[in-house]
Amino acid sequence: MKQTENLSAALPPTNPAAPLPPKPLTAKTLPDDEFFFGHKGCAGCGGALVVRQTLKVLGPHVICALPAGCMSAVGFNFPQLSFANNAMITPFAATASVLSGIEAGLRAQGIKPEDCTVVGFAGDGGTADIGLQALSGAIDRNDDILYICYDNEAYMNTGIQKSSLTPFGAKTTTTPAGAHVHGCLTRKKNMFQIVAAHDIPYAATASIGYLNDFIKKVQKAATIHGTRYIHVIAPCPTGWGTREDETIDLAKEVADCGLWYLAEFEGSQLCGMPGGKYIVNRRPKEFSSVEAYLRRQGRFKQLDENDVQEVIRERDIAWAWLDDLATGAK
């Protein structure tokens, strides 16, 4: 692992006359450079992988902003600062608006390098709940920023409380599972649909279990101007009640059993079609067992057969919607 000092000494000059054309990256060809290390993330943290892999793709000239949440809590502890690139903490609700300010500030002064991506990493609560208004504002202005939501399906930093991206049936400390209520009663808010409804230039869903797909989407997003949004599932062993070596498996399985999907939205600006275009990147011919996925996690332990059937029913509705959108776009 390279140290910060060596890394910055090795940086190409800012505003290179001819930026290198991006080569398609895979898990095997990702640079060895590290931009996020020495942090205090839990063992098996999915969110930390999102940040680490994204920064490897985007390179040294990134500026990132992180609101209150797991990644700022584990990454910004003075004097142990864990970002080798420019980075700052933002108010909880302000990921998108701080990103907008950074981008506008660089542009107004004419000091933004060609290969600079202004990127935010916010959790599910920071994105779908308290930060949604600022995100909507940034997409409305089409500010040239990349917003990445690492979704671990609850407020994990404060100790596992329900967010609007907590799935039906999940036990959290504010949706306790008892004899009367079996955990979270609401369904996962559809952030992908919400940002797409803004006709955002580019949006994608991803999973850290499908790393090549995620890398590809980050790389694609980096080449697009305007607001870009990637929503990536990032399991949390601490909050999900799973072993720390299961994170990647779970991130795969949630997509295999159909409770998450890997998709893209190209807005009208990008694809030239009114209303934009939906693309499903991975359509399992046959879903793996939803029950098996749920049963291996402590947070779903209390679910009975009816609850599981309800989860499956919701999954099928979601896929019918997605298939319809993707087909309609062809």
Binding site: M88, S97, S100, G101, L106, I111, A134
Partner: peptide, 13 residues
């Protein structure tokens, strides 16, 4: 909230 947050980000540049 975003007005001052945006100014914050810009000032940091």
């Amino acid at each position: 909230h975003s007005a001052l947050s945006c100014a914050l980000g810009a000032s940091a540049t």
